[in-house]
Simulated scan of single mutants.
Amino acid sequence: MKGFRFGSTQGAFYILPGQDGWAATYGNETLGEFPSPQQACDDLARGLSCEHLSELDTSTLEIPEKLADWEIVHV
């Protein structure tokens, strides 16, 4: 199975297969479940609001909106 990784200046974000679709993670925290990896990517790039990221605005981290710009990881 494959997933996606983006290394930001604040740490790595992952989009991985989850229980109900795709899970976006940062550190040891799951940021949410998404119907597709592209939806997770879009939300992270545009500024995901999540209680685990209360002090971090993902829209300021230059997260790419295209999955092709993320690193592919095998899980």
Rank of each mutant, 00 (worst) to 15 (best):
E51H: 13
E55H: 12
G7I: 00
Q39A: 15
F34T: 06
A23F: 09
C50I: 04
K2E: 11
K66G: 03
G27W: 09
G18T: 06
L44T: 01
G7P: 07
T9R: 14
Y14A: 05
T30R: 10
A40G: 14
Q10R: 14
L67Y: 05
F6N: 07
G47Q: 08
C41V: 02
L61G: 02
D43E: 15
V75K: 12
A40T: 05
D42T: 09
A24H: 12
F4P: 00
Q38V: 04
S36K: 00
V73F: 05
L56Q: 04
H52T: 09
P64W: 01
G7V: 12
G32N: 12
Q19S: 14
S49H: 15
E51R: 03
H74M: 12
D69T: 05
H52V: 08
L48V: 02
K2V: 11
K2S: 10
I15P: 08
K66V: 08
A24W: 05
D43F: 05
D20H: 13
K2N: 11
Y26G: 06
I15V: 15
D43W: 09
E33W: 11
W70I: 01
S54L: 03
E29N: 14
E65S: 10
A40Q: 07
S59Y: 06
D20Q: 15
P17S: 11
E62H: 03
Q39Y: 02
S54C: 00
E62T: 10
P17Y: 06
S8N: 13
C41P: 11
Q10A: 14
N28Q: 14
R5M: 11
N28S: 15
E55W: 08
F13S: 13
D57G: 00
V75Y: 10
I63V: 04
E65D: 11
L53V: 10
A23I: 13
S36W: 08
S54A: 05
A12E: 14
G3K: 04
L48N: 12
E51A: 10
Q38Y: 07
F6K: 05
F13Q: 06
